[in-house]
Simulated assay, not measured.
Amino acid sequence: MSVRPLTAATVTVALVLLAAAPASAATSTLADSYGLTTDRLVATSAAFLGLAAAIVGGWAAARAGSPHRSLIAIGTGAVAAVVGVIGFATADGGPGTGNGIVGAAIAIFLGVVAIALGALARARAHR
């Protein structure tokens, strides 16, 4: 199985998420904070990307024979963590304001977990 389609999909998702973040920075109001704002959508998407990366990283760590899964986990985990850091840094308020700060924090955590699991699987594959 080639890694190129998944890598291209990961880069595309990252570019879409990064392009949506600056456009939504000035549009948060109190009335929007109860719905799905653009900031929340970006942060939630990054959190789900981090969750998928952590699952792939755990799968790669459990089965030491596939170095491709570890690279996928490291790459997608890094994208989730970077988008989470950008969302966390650009949030105007705390939790409940519609700025996606909770989703960004979850994306950072899951991205770092995915990177760690991918690195663990990569180290085991080289032994």
Rank of each mutant, 00 (worst) to 15 (best):
G35N: 09
L71G: 08
L18G: 10
A121W: 04
G50D: 03
L51H: 12
L30T: 15
L49Y: 11
S66T: 12
A119I: 10
I74G: 13
F109E: 02
A119E: 02
A64S: 11
A60F: 05
A19S: 11
L6W: 14
I72Y: 05
T38P: 01
D92W: 09
L6H: 10
R69K: 13
A78H: 04
V102H: 02
L120S: 00
A121T: 01
I108A: 01
A105H: 05
S33K: 05
L41Y: 02
T90W: 13
A43H: 03
S70T: 14
V113P: 05
G35L: 14
V13R: 11
A121C: 14
P95W: 11
L36T: 04
A121S: 12
G77T: 02
V83C: 06
P95Q: 14
G94V: 15
A9H: 06
S33A: 13
A26L: 13
A116K: 11
A81G: 08
V79E: 00
H68E: 15
T27H: 12
L110R: 00
A64M: 00
T44E: 07
G77A: 10
I72V: 11
V42S: 05
F48H: 10
T12K: 13
A104D: 00
A52E: 03
S66Y: 12
S70I: 06
L110H: 00
A61V: 05
S66N: 15
T29G: 06
A8C: 01
G77S: 07
A31I: 09
A47L: 07
A25Y: 01
G84F: 02
R127F: 00
R124G: 05
L71E: 10
L51S: 13
G50N: 04
L36R: 08
A116D: 02
G84S: 04
T7N: 02
N99D: 06
L15W: 11
G58T: 00
L36P: 01
A46M: 09
G57Y: 03
S70V: 12
V3G: 02
M1E: 08
V113G: 05
G103V: 12
A53L: 08
A107S: 09
I101C: 01
F109H: 04
A89L: 07
T37V: 08
P5R: 12
L41E: 10
V13W: 02
T37L: 12
A114C: 15
S2E: 07
V13G: 01
L6Q: 01
I101E: 02
T7K: 08
T37Q: 14
T12D: 15
P22Q: 10
N99Q: 08
A104Y: 00
T7G: 09
D32G: 15
L117E: 14
S45Q: 04
V112R: 03
L18C: 07
I86Q: 06
H68C: 13
A104N: 03
V102Q: 11
A52N: 11
L49S: 05
G77R: 03
G50S: 05
W59Y: 15
A80I: 06
A46H: 02
G93T: 13
I106S: 10
G65V: 13
